[in-house]
Design a protein around this nucleic acid. Structure first.
Lengths: 228, 228
DNA sequence: CGGACGTTTCGCGGGCCTCCGAAAGGCGGC
DNA sequence: GCCGCCTTTCGGAGGCCCGCGAAACGTCCG
């Protein structure tokens, strides 16, 4: 079987797809948590998680009696977002997860949604970053502005990739990914521009949601010219 | 079932995956050709093609007693390439389709593979194109150079998107997509820098292959500084 | 008009694979 | 050391869905 079919078949099962979506923010979940988000028993969840790990989509880290699962890397998160952006089957049923979900959410460790793509557009259009082979590099003025905002550029550079594009599922335009994307998201949550929604037990997808605080809206407007 | 699982399940069937891969170059195939490519009977192929059409991944155009199927759009081709770039299951079995496949091939209507990503790197790095919201625009000098090479910029601008990134499956870096990508590929095949491999009946994937001619290698080196 | 071809619909058989319940293995806490 | 929690393994049942063959529909051609 071709690689394409193998991978897609793995993602195509509802239980495994739910697990993968729950892992999209980039954090690790235990086998039990995966079972709950998929709505299946622990036994079945264990088998499905093993399939995901064997395929290389998910990595696992044993710690005590827990086993923590996370997406194997940024490319996996990116590929999942891309898949979700494909033409929806049947008559366009608005946005199944609500408007807030579309405004801002985590993807791997960076900001996605309207705010994420607006950031990307501003940073490329206003000369914060510029194209380089394999992604983006910060311009001189961009570095200064980022540092002034409290973005840890040294940490961003330690990532496998400094900055590259990740297709945004809901907006169908790229948002910023890579180490820089992660550090920007980290800065924004640290400064309480964006806050995470407390995950409700029922809706696993809300786990990814980010809310924009009033200060955040002000800061995004002042610093980036973005109307949140 | 979530949208993610629905779409992935569709791609995850070996027969449908084979059909989609055969459609990747961007051209249309009849239902019978899809059946042959997938290695199944006409009846089964018809049902599978219908599923792909219903989901919106593939569009169909009836003409006489043939029904021509093609990918619904550039995003679909892009998503498929992205999926194929994911970590392979099991020990990295080199490149299943051969080195030539990795050098140059068609994706939607543009050039992918080593030559495709090298083009992207050169054009972004040497100022042929520059970042803009939602993709790339040609710089003034880039326009002049492209026009001189015989690239139809007016046709490129008529496309829904002028230029944007498409993740390259084999190279794991972006290559150029959109109207500009299509026109560049068109120019290169028209000037016989790249030629299509005659599709053999047995290996459906070879349908996508492009070969670089001696003149092509010279031209790529002179015009873009690419060692093909 | 009749036959050939491409395509689709129908009904059926069969296989893959997904889930569950029970039980066993590891690890931590008391 | 015993018990409880998290996780995995095992065996079995059920269902989804994929492919085939036969037949019907539409189109092209002689």
């Amino acid at each position: 079987m071709s690689n394409l079919a193998t991978i897609a078949h793995l993602i195509g099962d509802p239980s495994r797809a739910a697990m993968l979506q729950a892992l999209l923010p980039g954090e690790a979940l235990t086998a039990g948590e995966l079972a709950r988000v998929a709505g299946i028993g622990a036994a079945a969840a264990s088998a499905q998680a093993k399939a995901l790990v064997d395929s290389g989509l998910v990595s696992v880290h044993a710690q005590g009696r827990h086993r923590y699962h996370r997406l194997a890397g940024e490319e996996v998160a990116s590929a999942l977002e891309t898949l979700m952006a494909l033409p929806q089957a049947s008559p366009r049923k608005s946005w199944p997860h609500g408007e807030g979900f579309r405004q801002a959410r985590l993807c791997w460790h960076h900001v996605a949604g309207r705010i994420g793509v607006a950031l990307h557009a501003r940073m490329t259009g206003d000369g914060w970053i510029e194209a380089a082979p394999g992604g983006w590099v910060a311009t001189e003025s961009g570095e200064a502005r980022l540092a002034k905002l409290g973005v840890d550029l040294a940490a961003a550079r330690r990532a496998p990739r400094f900055a590259c594009d990740c297709m945004d599922w809901s907006e169908r335009r790229p948002h910023l990914s890579g180490g820089l994307g992660r550090e920007i998201a980290s800065m924004m949550t640290r400064r309480l521009w964006l806050t995470r929604i407390e995950p409700s037990a029922t809706d696993l997808l809300q786990r990814r949601r980010l809310a924009c605080t009033p200060e955040g809206a002000r800061a995004l407007s002042v610093e980036f010219g973005i109307a949140a």
